[in-house]
Design a protein around this nucleic acid. Structure first.
Length: 426
RNA sequence: GGAGAAAUACUCAAGUGGCCGAAGAGGCGCCCCUGCUAAGGGUGUAGGUCGUUAACGCGGCGCGAGGGUUCAAAUCCCUCUUUCUCCGCCA
């Protein structure tokens, strides 16, 4: 959510900042809603002040033996009037708030111009695309040949865009998960959390998935309540601190979390239909930070490096791109994508997305901090990034570490988790 | 699923219709005393948010949340949420 004061004071500036995004926003509606609310508030508060004043007099009048029936009759009318306007206020309040929830974040000024992912800017690369002296296979073919990935059985038990992992495949997925969590907790100083995989509507709104992207989420009903399956650990972990005022001395707070992630992929029909790239359920280790405003961009750089490092340790070629305005998404002020080399695609494929939301989520989720006991509470900045997507890592390892005979060399750092050096058909 | 108890400020906690934004204690700030520590004495400290104002300020809201009764609600009524205890069931 944007700062309402910013919209009031620099309306044109906000308009301009949002203009480059791929969507149109009717900002004139803002003025209308805001003015209506403030007008009604002024009215009802004046009446309430009067009511409070008289209410204090009544006991005194009674004590003095005066007759209060006339005053009370007057106050009854006033009370009715207040009730009436109060109802209008809460309506106006809701209308304004609902509207504010639909406005995207303002991009950081350094975010490159551009409309699509073609306009993203490559910042750096690690290693070079893997070279093969044989015709490399796609991971879905490798997985099928080795008997470790089984989408057909998954389709039988669930539907499309699911995969059953078997044997070394399942073990590899689990090995990667543990490797990521170990690196981030032991080397990068993140505190691991293991949150629920189902969250409330309020949480989804707090991080910005709702109200705009409801069709992307899975909903679950079972005990007379509504839940959403988490699309990313960002949602439960960020919302852990909802409606809290944090101690500035504790910032930055750094969490890493494994969750399964669930996405309807409503707009992705026909895209990436084979393999592990686009599934309704996938595993991910997420990094989440809560920082002071002045440190958030430095922390974004560090977070991105933390994510990169697991790929370096795995020896997977990747590049980092800075996302342009048009590709930025709804909630981010700045975003870096880390893209891993995927031989079957013949290009780099997103495996991590590292964003600074500035105060956009903090304002929605009401997460603040105080520098010390005396200072005023301010919104924190929130950041997160995949550290990194596990399913896509599995795919990348299968493809980049494949041998001519279809076997897979296990990356050095995973061997202790896998208990073997090579994956072969058994 | 059944039965009960609770939710008040940073923490603990008093408060059953009007001088309650809310006693008291702890904590925290300052001062004194004891040569630093511990203990003691004094004194002070209340959040957050919305509106308004150039600003000092003024005003609204606020005692888990939302409704209701009333001229007036922390206090009465209803609904919900959460936590705890007991019983049942269960991975």
């Amino acid at each position: 959510m944007l700062d309402i004061k910013l919209l009031r004071n620099d309306f044109e500036g906000v308009k301009k900042a949002l203009a480059n995004r791929n969507e149109e926003f009717d900002l004139s509606l803002f003025k209308e809603l805001d003015n209506r609310r403030r007008d009604l508030l002024g009215q009802v508060e004046a009446l309430k002040a009067e009511q409070n004043k008289v209410s204090k007099m009544i006991p005194q009048m009674k004590k003095a033996g005066e007759d209060t029936t006339a005053v009370m009759a007057e106050m009854k009318e006033l009370s009715a009037k207040i009730k009436e306007i109060d109802a209008e206020v809460s309506e106006a309040d809701k209308a304004l708030n609902d509207y504010m929830l639909t406005l995207p974040n303002i991009p950081n000024p350094t975010v490159p111009e551009g409309k699509t992912d073609e306009d993203n800017v490559e910042l750096r690369k690690f290693s070079e695309p893997t070279a093969f002296d044989f015709e490399p296979k796609a991971h879905w073919d490798l997985g099928a040949d080795l008997g470790i990935l089984d989408p057909e059985t998954a389709a039988k038990i669930s539907g499309s865009r699911f995969t059953v992992y078997r044997g070394d495949g399942a073990r590899l997925e689990r090995a990667i998960m543990n490797f990521f969590l170990d690196v981030h907790t032991e080397e990068h100083g993140y505190t691991e959390v293991f949150p629920p995989f189902m969250v409330s509507r309020e949480s989804m709104t707090g991080t910005g998935q709702l109200p705009k992207f409801e069709e992307d989420a899975y909903k679950v009903y079972g005990d007379g309540r509504e839940y959403f399956l988490v699309p990313t650990a960002e949602v439960p972990v960020t919302n852990m601190y909802r409606d809290q005022i944090l101690d500035g001395a504790q910032l930055p707070i750094k969490h890493c979390a494994y969750t399964a992630c669930f996405r309807a992929e409503a707009g992705s029909a026909g895209r990436d239909t084979r393999g592990l790239i686009r599934q309704h359920q996938f595993n991910k280790v997420e990094l989440v930070k809560f920082t002071k405003p002045e440190q958030s961009y430095e922390e974004l750089e560090k977070l991105t490096r933390d994510a990169e490092e697991v790929l370096q340790k795995l020896g997977l070629p990747y590049r980092v791109v800075k996302i342009c305005i048009g590709d930025l998404g709804f909630t981010a002020a700045m975003k870096y994508d880390i893209e891993v080399w995927m031989p079957s695609y013949g290009r780099y494929v997103e495996i991590s997305s590292c964003s600074n939301f500035e105060s956009f989520q903090a304002r929605r989720a009401n997460i603040k901090y105080k520098e010390d006991a005396k200072s005023k509470a301010e919104f924190v900045h929130t950041l997160n990034g995949s550290g990194v997507a596990i399913g896509r890592t599995t795919a990348a390892i299968l493809e980049n570490y494949q041998q001519a005979d279809g076997s897979i060399i296990v990356p050095e750092v995973l061997r202790k988790y896998m208990g073997k050096d090579i994956i072969t058909k058994n």
